[in-house]
């Protein structure tokens, strides 16, 4: 990465930080429109930086720009929207667009698994809790942030640090020279001879049997991790039930039912 692109990247992050600062809920001082303007500038600068990393644009490039724009915009709204329900919905948008990016990275199985787990299960329970706890009015703690300036500075400096290093990836070991991942799967990974040469591109798609490969990897090399995650889920289930269960009264205790005339009178169970 040349110094010019690095400075452009920093500029993009500075703009983005300003945008997020203006959009974060700060009571009357919130200026979402100004923030959105800064954010737009930041996205344009970022796409300029990223376009230097793209060697030959093809259709995946356009999909990448589309879905990453949606992902970033929705992620900003997740952390800045004053209503938690909207935050949760924007998070679903983030999940869907990240899943699209995963599909572009040929991880279809993980993409759909993420949608099923996040959008299908986790976010429904989040919405459930939000709806139980909060009705439509916005309480004061949702329209004020803690230390927005310092947090934005810390977060965006971290972002710049990670992103600058990440943008320097030279794909030196591109295609599967890693024999361990071939395990017992019948599908042979694509491998061409020139793996040592940093070409700057990824040449071949991995394979079509993505589910098969992930399954083989999970069930052979990482089988212990799989077992442990099963135990973890069990522990979480027990913990969640133990924490949130209602205190049930003792056996035989019955609250008195209010007399409602005929309705509510005791009858023999049939």
């Amino acid at each position: 990465m040349t110094p010019e692109t690095a400075y452009l990247l920093y500029f993009a992050f500075a703009l983005g930080g300003a945008g997020v600062y203006f959009m974060l809920p700060r009571g009357e001082a919130t200026k979402p429109a100004v923030g959105a303007l800064f954010g737009l500038g930041s996205l344009i600068a970022l796409s300029l930086v990223l376009s230097t990393r793209i060697i030959t644009p093809d259709h995946t490039t356009y999909y990448f720009y589309l879905f990453s724009t949606i992902a970033i915009a929705a992620a900003v709204r997740v952390i800045t929207h004053p209503k938690p329900v909207y935050s949760a919905l924007y998070f679903i948008l983030v999940v869907i667009s990240v899943s699209a990016l995963l599909v572009l990275l040929e991880a279809e199985f993980l993409a759909v698994a993420a949608i099923i787990v996040y959008a299908g299960a986790i976010m429904v329970t989040y919405l459930f809790v939000i709806m139980l706890a909060q009705q439509t009015s916005t309480p004061h703690y949702d329209s004020r942030s803690r230390e927005p300036l310092l947090a934005v500075m810390a977060g965006f400096v971290l972002m710049a640090a990670i992103a600058t290093r990440s943008a320097d990836i030279a794909p030196s070991r591109v295609v599967a020279s890693d024999a361990r991942s071939q395990v017992t799967s019948p599908v042979v990974l694509v491998s061409d001879g020139a793996t040592d040469e940093p070409t700057g591109t990824i040449n071949e798609p991995l394979t079509r049997g993505n589910t098969l490969l992930v399954g083989a990897s999970v069930m052979t090399r990482y089988v212990v991790v799989l077992e442990i995650s099963g135990v973890l889920l069990l522990v979480s289930m027990v913990g969640a039930i133990a924490m949130s269960r209602k205190r049930v009264p003792m056996e035989g205790y019955r609250p008195a039912a209010p007399p409602l005339g005929q309705i509510g009178k005791e009858v023999e169970p049939y």
């Binding site: 199985f109 959008a119 299908g120 429904v124 993505n210």
Partner: peptide, 28 residues
């Protein structure tokens, strides 16, 4: 004809609840 057609249908089915939940909550 995706490699994960069945999971795709499962995922779409899982999203089906949002219409009901959001409609019910937004009605206030």
């Amino acid at each position: 004809n995706p490699d994960i057609g069945l999971l795709y249908l499962l995922g779409v089915g899982g999203m089906g609840v949002y219409g009901v939940v959001l409609g019910g909550w937004a009605s206030n």
